[in-house]
Design a protein around this nucleic acid. Structure first.
Lengths: 153, 153
DNA sequence: TTGATATCATTTGCATACGAATGAATTTGC
DNA sequence: GCAAATTCATTCGTATGCAAATGATATCAA
C-alpha cells in the first residue's frame, strides 16, 4: 500500500478506529465472559451444587453457625438472594435453621452432618476448579491476575 | 518467637493454614464480586438499560442487521437468553425484527432509528463506566489486567 | 419512656443465565 | 434425491441477582 493510499484512508474515514467502541475490549464484557467460563468449569466438576450454594456451605464450614443476613454479607449476596440459596440447601438437608434466642429477628444457619460431609468431599474438587480456571495463565501471571482482580472486587 | 514455639505450633495445628480452603481467595468468588461491582457501576451511569441489553445494541450498531442466533454468539448469550433480551428491546422500540428471505429459520434483528440514537448517546457513558471500573488500577496495571483477563475469558 | 431509626427477614417483580426438549427449516452424506 | 444430521428459534423449568416494599424486632435519643 502506498503513502497516498494511507493518506486517502485517513481523509475518507468517517470514524477513525480510535473513536470506535468495541464491546469485546470492554472490561465489563470480558469480565462477564470470564465469569461464565468459570461457572461452566465449576458445573463440569460439581454437578449437583451451584457456585453460590457451594460458597454458602464453604463459609459455614469456615466460620460455623451464623445468621442468614451475616452469611449473605460474607458471601456477597443480598438478603433476597441468600434466602433462596439457603432455602434450597435446607430442602436438601445440607443446612438447618434455628431462631436466635436473644434477637428474635435473626435466623441462624448451620451445616447439618450431611452438609459438613458434603463440603469436606467437595473442597478438593473446588481446588481443581480454581486450578482449571487459571490454567490459561502461567503461575506468575495467575498471581498477578489474582492480585489485580482483588483490587477491582 | 523461639524455635520451640514454631515446632509446637506445627505439632499442635490440626489444620495448617496451607490446608485450609479460603473462599475469599478463590478466583471464582473474586470474579463474581468484581462482576457484581461492575454491574453496579453500570447501573449508576445507565439506569434504563442492563449490560446485556447494552451489549446487544452496541453489537448491532457495530455490525448492522444480523440473526438473533448470530447476535447471541457475538455477545456470549445462549439462544434462550438472547431471546429474552431482544424481546425486551423490541418492546421498547429499540430493535425491530424481520424474517430472513432465504433461510426461513432465521429471525433478523436490527436497530430502529430510536435504537441507533440511544446507543450513540450511551457509548460515551459506557466509556466512563469502563474507566470507573478500572479506577482502582494504575494505567499499567489495567493494561496487564485486561490482557490476562482476556486470556481467561 | 417513648418515638424515631435501624436491622433482619420476607415477598414481589423483573432480568439474566443455562440445560433440556421441541418443531421447523436447511444442509450433508451417501 | 433422500434420510440423517445440523441449525435456528422457542418454550419450560430452575437458579441467581437486585430493587423496593413490608412487617417484626431491636436500638437510639430526646
Amino acid at each position: 500500500m502506498s503513502g497516498e493510499d494511507n493518506l486517502l484512508r485517513l481523509v475518507e474515514a468517517e470514524e477513525p478506529d480510535e473513536n470506535n467502541y468495541h464491546l469485546q475490549d470492554q472490561v465489563g464484557f470480558i469480565l462477564r465472559k470470564a465469569h461464565q467460563r468459570h461457572v461452566a468449569i465449576f458445573a463440569a466438576h460439581i454437578a449437583d451444587l451451584t457456585p453460590p450454594q457451594f460458597a454458602a456451605l464453604a463459609k459455614l464450614y469456615d466460620i460455623g453457625e451464623t445468621s442468614q443476613n451475616q452469611l449473605g454479607t460474607l458471601i456477597a449476596m443480598d438478603a433476597a438472594t441468600v434466602k433462596g440459596v439457603i432455602d434450597r440447601l435446607k430442602a436438601r438437608g445440607l443446612v438447618e435453621l434455628s431462631k436466635h434466642e436473644v434477637d428474635k429477628r435473626r435466623l441462624l444457619v448451620n451445616l447439618t452432618p450431611e452438609g459438613r460431609e458434603a463440603i469436606e468431599r467437595l473442597i478438593p474438587l473446588a481446588r481443581a476448579i480454581t486450578e482449571e480456571t487459571l490454567a490459561p495463565l502461567t503461575a506468575k501471571e495467575a498471581a498477578t491476575f489474582l492480585r489485580l482482580l482483588a483490587k477491582l472486587a
